[in-house]
Design a protein around this nucleic acid. Structure first.
Lengths: 189, 189
DNA sequence: TTTTATCCAACAACGTGTCGTATGTTTTTA
DNA sequence: TAAAAACATACGACACGTTGTTGGATAAAA
């Protein structure tokens, strides 16, 4: 039997769950280790066997939520399927909405949005034509713009309990991105 | 003489300055009141005459940084001058860059971005044609998209020490917003 | 002088991180 | 297969630092 491993995993998860049940309603700064361990039913000292401090729990959770490059679907930027970055985020968000909607919300962690952007930038760059009319620096700004917008509108959508059909949301983003930009990014000059 | 008032103001400002000198390099959770008052040269108890806790300092600072509606310039959305929201943010950012670049950065406060968006939304709505093809809800999503994007690209620009001429940044945003959207927002159906 | 307000020192309560130990599990040995 | 050794997990107790409050000292304003 590998009971030990299971217990360890279970304890860790219990602590994480207890933390999250607090984090989703409190600012992180007001969360004490005592609260977490009490909620999970452990001694306060046990916490330190698994995490260094409260922020360590958050960061460990975040790390599991950043998609690895190879996990993400390959992407093609065509005029027809240009809601692309949105599809990507819709999937990601839907899959982890429990965490994303908090982490990207008002009491969330601004660093998480940055991590997310940096993780998805390479994927999108792949879809861009290397010989576009933009320099690398400029492309980076363009990505920053698009990703910020995408995260912003998605967070808004979740925060408002999806008071818009997905199809309409996609149409809106389609309108917002415009076709001219895609053409410019693709253009081989 | 109103020496008293001056002293009060000065003490308050000293505490705020001391706080900020710490906040710009530390996460807020690691800032202690002891540090603040030591840096400012006061007793720890004095802090509580002015603020309730560390977060109160931050929020009081933030409140002075949110533009009042009447402070913002009136706005007109024309095809030629459509970098508009960017101009607005360029001004705001430039004027308070010392604070904005931190508050909107990785160690900043995500709630501040929301405050900022909500404060500027009415201004932009004013510029939109009421009879556009979009419903109120949809317009709100559009604004959320645009403002998130604008804040994102501006923060990026400042974080990277403006490694792009302003003129080029404006051109990029111009490309990104596209003219078709503006037309749709303006269209009287 | 009286009143008002700023600033300070001291206090109790609380949270933090660490260390030694007990308990239960896995592995080794007889 | 059973006892013993080695290991890991969870706990209680400790010293330390931070918090927020209260009562008093000092200086300005009335």
């Amino acid at each position: 039997m590998l009971k030990q491993k299971e217990i360890t995993m279970q304890t860790r998860q219990n602590l994480i769950d207890a933390f999250w049940s607090l984090y989703r309603v409190c600012r992180i700064e007001s969360i004490t280790i005592k609260e977490i361990t009490q909620k999970a039913g452990y001694n306060r000292g046990t916490f330190y066997e698994y995490f260094t401090d409260v922020y360590d729990v958050l960061h460990q959770i975040e790390d599991t939520l950043i998609p690895r490059i190879d996990e993400l679907p390959p992407i093609q930027l065509t005029e027809k399927q240009l809601g692309m970055p949105l599809d990507l985020f819709l999937d990601l968000y839907e899959k982890n909405s429990k965490y994303y909607s908090i982490l990207l919300g008002d009491n969330g962690d601004p660093a998480f949005a940055t991590k997310l952007k940096n993780a998805t930038k390479p994927i999108l760059l792949e879809a861009f034509n290397r010989n576009s009319v933009y320099t690398d620096t400029e492309l980076d700004y363009i990505l920053e713009y698009i990703l910020s917008a995408m995260i912003g509108i998605m967070s808004h959508w979740f925060a408002r309990d999806k008071d818009l059909p997905v199809t309409r949301l996609i149409e809106l983003v389609h309108d917002l991105m415009g076709t001219s930009l895609i053409q410019r990014i693709q253009s081989t000059e």
